[in-house]
Amino acid sequence: MKYTLSVLVENRPGVLTRIAGLFARRGYNIDSLSVGRTEDDRFSRMTIVVDGDSDIVEQVAKQLNKLIDVIKVTDITSVPHVERELVFIQVSSDSGNRGEIMDLLNIFRGRVIDMSKNNMIVESTGDSAKIDAMISSLRPYGIKEVMRTGKIGLLRGTKEDDRRKG
């Protein structure tokens, strides 16, 4: 099963290495990892999707917590949260099927962000299942490249932030 961990860390050089290194040496699988600064420049928030059973994920969370630069680890998998992923897809298209592809994009709330004679780049955000569905719908037209950001997630409400400030 896939678990989503929201990890608040110090915004310092080397933090990503420490976290990636921990996953590598303990043999945990990172499905995706995305990271960016929070509202406070001193901290970054990572969303890490881990593949494994609940025991492994519990160990992952505990080991992450042991890193001095990690402030808080929250398993948000089964608590109310919002999550999104951004995707760019470069797909083959010509004047013959462009309209068809645009119709398809409407269904997935995707947008065209670049177009040339033989292909276009489209973007979309959504949960991972929606992105997967969009990619498989576009596949018959000929996908040239896909770039996904990995999931970012945030707990609903402000519990985590309150605790940090407290």
Partner: peptide, 8 residues
């Protein structure tokens, strides 16, 4: 003292 040792 190390919670990560519990159940490891």
């Amino acid at each position: 003292i190390d919670p990560a040792e519990i159940g490891k």
